[in-house]
Design a binder for these strands. Structure first.
Length: 429
RNA sequence: GGAGAGGUGGCCGAGCGGUCGAAGGCGCUGGACUGGAAUUCCAGUAAUAUCCAAAAGGUAUUCGUGGGUUCGAAUCCCACCCUCUCCGCCA
């Protein structure tokens, strides 16, 4: 959520910034709504003040045994007028909230211009894509040759965009997740968290998935009551919301959480995209990093967090590049995002395996995540960051494809071997 | 699922329907005392919106959430949510 004060003080800059994303801000409507809400608020406050004053007078009169009738007559119409005013205010407030919750975050100045991913800016590369002296297979072929990747079975059980992984491949998948968790906990200073996978509408509103992107989520309806829960699309949602509705004391910051969870996305609107293999699934595992920091430190934290994710790829000996997302490609809640793209020999392309974002105060304002700024002594929004560290399914794909051998085996990266009983190589049966 | 108890400020804990944003205590902050500290004493100590150029201050809202009764609700009524205890079931 954007700061309304910014709208009042610098409306034009704000609209121009949003326009870089391709978002057309109806400034007149927003300004008018804000003005009317304020006006109505003042009106209602005045009426309430009158009611309170008169009620107090009635109380005193009663205590002194005076006749209440004339006093009661004076307030006869007050209730109705107040109720009408309150109703109008609620309506205006709801309209304003709806508009505000729909606005994406402001972009950081450093975000490159552009409409889609073709305009993303490469920041750096690490590692050389390996040269194969045989035809590199993609992960589906490798997985089936090794045994243990069964997309057909998943289709029978659940439908498209699910996978069954079994045997050593499943162990490798698990080893990847555990390696990442251990790395971030032991070397990068994150606190491991186990969190709910089902969350409320309010929680998803806090991080910005709702109200705008409901079609991307899986929702569970419960028959009794009108309660609803959503499957999380990323652990960013529960982890970031840990700071919601709190006023953190300075020594508590930064909060650094890591969690390994399943993630669920309906992938609405992605028909025909990445239909083969594990790249785009309704359910996938991810190790997620979240930081809650002092505003002045959030851009340093973004570099740090991105480095933590990159470290995973480096230790797995996977070539990757870092790209800064352009204005048109960056996510709704983010002010600046780096994607890590891993080299996939099976596709001959770099593909996203992590996305690291600084949301600045955008999510914090939505979820009331604050800290007490010692300089002002007042509660102010914190800055929140998140990044995959990294997507486990895609990491599995990358390991299989990058470390495949001519004989159909796959070399297990050294850092994973302790998690796999020391085996160095996956071998077809 | 059944039976019961309860949700009040950072925490504990009072609160006859009428200056209650809320006693008291703890914690925290500042001051006095001290060579320094402890003790003790004094004072201060919520958030949000809004008015004011800003500060000071004023006004409004907030006692789990939403609705209702009333001139007036932390206090009465209804619904829901959550926590705890016991029983049942279960990993």
């Amino acid at each position: 959520m954007l700061d309304l004060r910014l709208l009042r003080s610098e409306p034009v800059q704000l609209a121009r910034n949003l326009a870089r994303r391709g978002y057309r801000l109806d400034l007149d409507r927003l300004t008018e709504l804000d003005r009317r809400r304020k006006e109505q608020q003042i009106g209602v406050d005045t009426l309430r003040n009158e009611r309170n004053t008169r009620s107090r007078a009635i109380g005193q009169a009663k205590a002194q045994g005076q006749d209440l009738a004339p006093l009661l007559a004076e307030v006869a119409t007050l209730g109705a007028r107040l109720a009408a005013g309150e109703q109008a205010l609620a309506k205006l407030q709801a309209a304003l909230d709806a508009l505000l919750l729909d606005l994406p975050n402001l972009l950081h100045d450093s975000v490159p211009d552009g409409q889609d991913e073709s305009a993303n800016k490469e920041i750096r590369r690490h590692g050389e894509p390996r040269r194969f002296d045989f035809e590199a297979a993609d992960h589906v072929a490798i997985g089936e040759r090794l045994g243990g990747l069964d997309l057909a079975a998943a289709g029978r059980i659940s439908g498209a965009r699910f996978a069954v992984i079994s045997g050593p491949l499943a162990s490798l998948h698990r080893a990847l997740a555990q390696f990442m968790l251990d790395l971030h906990v032991r070397e990068h200073g994150y606190r491991e968290a186990y969190v709910p996978l089902l969350v409320s509408r309010q929680t998803l509103t806090g991080t910005g998935q709702l109200p705008k992107f409901e079609q991307d989520l899986f929702k569970l309806a419960r028959a009794e009551a009108d309660s609803e829960l959503f499957l999380i699309p990323t652990a960013e949602v529960p982890l970031t919301n840990l700071a919601g509705d709190r006023i953190l004391e300075p020594p508590e910051l930064p909060l650094k959480f890591v969690a390994h969870t399943a993630c669920f996305r309906s992938e609405a609107g992605s028909y025909g995209k990445d239909t083969r293999g594990l790249i785009r699934q309704h359910q996938f595992d991810k190790v997620e990093l979240v930081q809650v920091v002092r505003p002045a430190e959030s851009y340093a934290a973004l570099e740090e967090l991105t480095g933590h994710a990159a470290r995973v790829l480096e230790l797995l000996d996977l070539p990757y590049r870092v790209v800064a997302l352009c204005a048109g490609d960056i996510g709704f809640s983010s002010a600046r995002t780096y994607d890590l793209e891993v080299w996939l020999p099976g596709q001959g392309k770099y593909r996203e395996i992590s996305s690291c974002s600084n949301c600045e105060a955008f999510q914090a304002r939505r979820m009331q995540a604050r800290w007490r700024n010692p300089e002002s002594g007042k509660p102010e929004p914190v800055h929140t960051l998140n990044g995959s560290g990294v997507a486990v399914g895609r990491a599995l794909v990358a390991v299989l494809e990058n470390h495949q051998q001519a004989d159909g085996t796959v070399i297990v990266p050294a850092v994973l071997r302790p998690y796999l009983g020391g085996i160095e190589r996956l071998t077809p049966p």
